[in-house]
């Protein structure tokens, strides 16, 4: 097998002041592929993503191994991370409008990210920014460039974050619900851009998503998380053949077009799902 982009062994994360681990025993490798992470709200998906970027200053992170290309993330200092984060690995955060600076125009923020990583004049960075906003299907990029975060729509915010990531050309992208606020037509176009990065540039892509249709059709493999642990790993196109009762419950809870209207099936969460899973 070719060398993985990311190799995580036995990752555990505990937030400061918390009485138990938010994430425990998580292991996976990521090649030049699209890996989905699905799971309960609160199961630790975003926490795993943030831990890989070492964005959790107040949390205690332990692992047997956390290797990103040639970098041992467990040993990397904050100074090392500043050079890696955003440039070589990038995370599209779940709350885009919150992660942007509220008092700076969104176009400026995208351009500054570009200038932080590449030598460019302001005018060049602006050109790049406008082209990228257009690439992510923003109507009227000139106008949106000059808006503040509170003046853009939810889906525009997600696309601004994606534009920012694209400009830095990272090798590893962790996308946390990157397309949940996009209409299906634009969503498919944006997914095709992400697809192109994996196919043409060979990046590793982690897609955290609640959208089972997206994971089934877009990803190669999928990890299912419940209560801080990975309970099942599947080939994405075999999602419907999942065995774990949590995954089966998820699939049953999804409304489908044309279904007869009835109460949606809900999960009967079992305490034994949370017990340690034998490695």
């Amino acid at each position: 097998m070719e060398k993985p982009v990311l190799d995580v062994r036995n990752l555990a994360i505990r937030y400061g002041g918390a009485s138990r681990d938010a994430v425990r025993g998580v292991s996976f490798t990521l090649g030049r592929e699209r890996l989905g992470i699905v799971g309960e709200s609160g199961s630790g998906k975003s926490t795993v993503g943030r831990a890989i970027l070492k964005l959790l200053p107040s949390a205690q992170i332990t692992a047997d191994r956390m290797q990103f290309e040639d970098i041992d993330l467990l040993k990397a200092s904050e100074r090392d991370m500043l050079k890696i984060r955003g440039r070589r690995m990038s995370m599209i955060l779940q709350d885009p409008k919150y992660s942007l600076n509220p008092i700076q125009r969104v176009g400026r923020q995208v351009a500054e990210t570009y200038m932080r990583h590449f030598p460019a004049t302001k005018a060049e960075a602006r050109q790049k920014t406008l082209a990228m906003l257009e690439a992510v299907k923003i109507r009227d990029p000139e106008r949106v460039h000059d808006l503040y975060p509170h003046e853009i729509s939810g889906g525009m915010g997600q696309r601004v974050m994606i534009a920012m990531m694209l400009l830095a050309e990272p090798d590893l992208v962790i996308a946390d619900e990157p397309t949940s606020a996009l209409d299906v037509t634009v969503r498919l176009q944006v997914l095709e851009i992400l697809n192109g990065l994996v196919r043409d540039r060979g990046i590793g892509l982690i897609m955290i998503s609640h959208d089972l249709n997206l994971v089934r059709n877009f990803c190669d493999r999928v990890l299912i998380m419940f209560d801080g642990q990975v309970v099942e790993t599947l080939n994405a196109h075999e999602l419907d053949r999942a065995q774990h009762p949590y995954t089966r419950g998820l699939l049953a809870a999804q409304p489908r077009i044309g279904d007869r209207r009835k109460m949606l099936s809900v999960l009967d969460r079992r305490p034994e799902w949370s017990q340690e899973i034998a490695q």
Binding site: V38, G39, E40, S41, H210, L212, G249, A253, V266, L267
Partner: peptide, 11 residues
Amino acid sequence: TSALDVSVQAE
């Protein structure tokens, strides 16, 4: 419910 997993969405 777009930020919720489908089981919580169902609830």
